[in-house]
Design a protein around this nucleic acid. Structure first.
Length: 471
DNA sequence: GCATGATCATGC
DNA sequence: GCATGATCATGC
């Protein structure tokens, strides 16, 4: 279909004008906003609708952005390295949000911004990188995803031009540098999405075995793409949505770094967070409590996490940067002789669901690959808890892709055989094991064999954690 | 009512 | 003292 034909078509959409100035970011945004409330079906040619209706197994997902470019904006999708709207420097991205049971919206997934060329990125500077030049200004078009719906009928929820800037830019740039430095060090094969905060290097490929060569090592590395993390996308959507006055949501989250001026040269977000604890290391919880002048309940289960947040200068339940980065804060308590008191649990899994998963897309991998923030206390001779250290941590990719994967595979094999007493025990692997995680014995999930078994989950072994925190 | 984080109890 | 099994407590 040629463009004039397309223009005639789009001119009928809800009174939308087909014309916009493709050299102007603001005008592109204005035109994009007219998509809100529409579905793809409204502006693509009947022939394409027919094609997808005929074969519903074909997902429109991969081509949704292209259809918008071609039939709504009248620009051909390009393979050119720069942004889609070249003169305006604007890159178009469509991305799904889902509505949660409580009525809030959350991003359905991370936003992929481009495959990493390990050879190219290794020698780039951030400001002149392909990534930054292409993605500095994004036209984000969010659509509402529904499980039972045809892609043609997903409703566009929000369109917004967003520029990477301010505190976000600080963190994204540091993330980018961290990834680039790993490539420079010949460690592209050890990159993990959990290494970084907002910008993650997620695996991307036809299958888990899609690999590429890297410049400074003979080791093949998984094919990866730079992407904005799911938590970050959720935050973006909600901020825009609230700004439009569509909905009042009390976020109850506060930043650790309130002002960008708090960043000093060479200090990353993580450095600044760790520095917040400097005055408290070596103090007992009581001393910290008094020093902070708190009036929180000492016997509450939330006491330790609240104490940690207050030391960071955050008064809300949620920490904005942690939410956006998907950082999980955990309190670890060590005994007098430096061992972790407890193993660390993950959410219980459904027997019938886990057997359908592939490792690379598994829930467990996603959960374990997150970045953790450990607040480590140790009991002293008087049985007081003393703040020992704080640290960010991501499980090394070898422990995850080898050890944890083994445990995960054994688990699935045992479930398939119906041998629920043969699930991997702590003694079988030094990183992880399976244990019950339930209200009581009656708290069960259905099994593959039609019976019921107590809810169980994966645990990180206390001994492994002891090693990690250097107890 | 349930998910989640945290912790206890028992027996070797 | 540790592995394993079991359960508690809180908040949404």
């Amino acid at each position: 279909m040629d463009r004039s034909n397309y223009l005639r078509k789009t001119s009928n959409i809800g009174g939308a004008s087909p014309s916009y100035d493709r050299t102007s970011p603001a005008d592109i945004e204005r035109y994009a906003k007219k998509l809100v409330g529409l579905t793809t079906r409204k502006f693509i040619p009947q022939a394409i609708i027919d094609k997808f209706e005929k074969n519903k197994s074909v997902s429109l997902k991969g081509v949704l952005g292209q259809l918008i470019e071609e039939y709504y904006f009248g620009t051909k999708a390009n393979n050119y390295k720069g942004p889609d709207f070249e003169q305006a420097g604007v890159e178009l991205k469509t991305t799904p949000v889902k509505k949660l049971k409580n009525g809030n919206y959350s991003s359905k997934e991370r936003l992929v911004l481009g495959i990493i060329d390990y050879f190219k990125m290794a020698s780039e500077k951030f400001d002149e990188s392909d990534f930054y030049k292409k993605n500095e200004k994004l036209l984000l078009i969010f659509y509402l995803y529904k499980d039972d719906n045809n892609f043609l009928d997903f409703i566009f929820k929000l369109a917004k031009l967003w520029k990477i800037e301010g505190e976000d830019l600080r963190i994204i740039k540091d993330d980018w540098l961290k990834i680039r430095n790993k490539i420079k060090d010949g460690l592209a094969h050890e990159i993990s999405e959990g290494d970084t905060l907002y910008l993650g290097a997620c695996t991307k490929g036809a299958n888990a075995e899609s690999t590429r060569t890297q410049p400074f090592s003979g080791q093949p590395a998984k094919q990866r793409a730079l992407s904005l993390k799911q938590g970050f996308m959720t935050d973006l959507f909600n901020r825009f949505y609230i700004a439009q006055g569509k909905k009042k949501v009390d976020y109850d989250s506060e930043r650790v770094i309130k002002n960008i001026d708090e960043y000093e040269d060479g200090f990353t977000f993580e450095d600044l967070v760790i520095r917040r604890f400097n005055g408290y290391i070596g103090k007992t919880t009581d001393e910290i409590y008094k020093k902070l002048g708190l009036d929180i309940n000492k016997h509450s289960k939330q006491f330790y996490s609240e104490l940690a947040r207050r030391m960071m200068g955050v008064n809300t339940k949620k920490i904005e940067e942690f939410e956006k980065a998907g950082v999980v804060m955990k309190t670890i308590r060590l005994t007098k002789n430096g061992k972790t008191k407890e193993d660390m649990s993950f959410p219980a899994f459904e027997y019938k669901e886990i057997v359908e998963e592939k490792w690379d897309e598994s829930i467990l991998k996603e959960q374990m690959e997150q970045r953790f923030f450990f607040v480590v206390y140790q009991y002293d001779d008087n049985d007081n808890l003393v703040l020992k250290k704080v640290m960010f941590w991501t499980i090394p990719i070898s422990d995850l892709d080898f050890e944890v994967k083994k445990v995960w595979e054994k688990t699935i094999a045992a479930i398939k055989e119906g041998k629920y007493n043969k699930l991997p025990k702590k003694s079988e692997n030094f990183v992880s094991h399976i244990r019950p995680h339930a209200k009581n014995k009656k708290d069960t999930f259905e099994t593959l064999q039609g019976g019921r078994e107590v809810k169980r989950c994966f645990w990180l072994n206390g001994g492994y954690l002891t090693k990690v925190v250097g107890g």
